[in-house]
């Protein structure tokens, strides 16, 4: 569906977490680590609270990719976060496959509260992946 789109850069929705990964994304700005402005962030309390339907909604409505900036082991709500977020991702990817979407349009990585550089690296490489004509 992105094929007919004329805009230059793929649109990515990032789910960040209020206490851990969102500060890292803020810091990326602070450090002027540039990344494409077509990356939009919506903070949630914890990455394991993201409902698959939100992800699907975003992808269906026009986002080229969704990136979950998960808490990883730093999650203030408990160790199980990573595992639970992982489950959400695989469940959603399953649903994406069923809908004929490339499951690689959903990505997840743990972004610690100071992982500004890894965040920028992730969204840049994700952008690159999504810009490939085959996608």
């Amino acid at each position: 569906m992105a094929l007919g789109n004329v805009t230059s850069s793929p649109k990515i929705l990032v789910f960040s977490t209020e206490k851990i990964s969102d500060p890292a994304i803020d810091m990326a700005g602070l450090l002027k680590l540039h990344y494409p402005p077509t990356v939009y962030t919506l903070p949630v309390p914890c990455s394991s609270a993201i409902k698959p339907r939100w992800i699907l909604h975003a992808l269906e409505q026009g986002f080229d990719g969704v990136f979950i900036a998960a808490d990883g082991t730093d999650c203030p709500y408990g160790e199980s976060c990573t595992e639970k977020t992982g489950a959400i991702v695989s469940m959603t990817q399953q649903m994406m496959k069923e809908k004929g979407m490339d499951p690689a349009r959903l990505k997840m990585a743990a972004i610690c509260s100071v992982c500004s550089e890894p965040f920028v690296r992730h969204v840049k490489s994700f952008t690159e992946y999504l810009s490939k004509p085959s996608n």
Partner: peptide, 20 residues
């Protein structure tokens, strides 16, 4: 948040930053 995740993150791309 249009500073840390707007103007500062995209100081290299003013139209993009405005759009965002």
């Amino acid at each position: 948040n249009i500073r840390e995740q707007g103007s500062w993150a995209h100081s290299d791309n003013k139209p993009g930053a405005t759009e965002k």
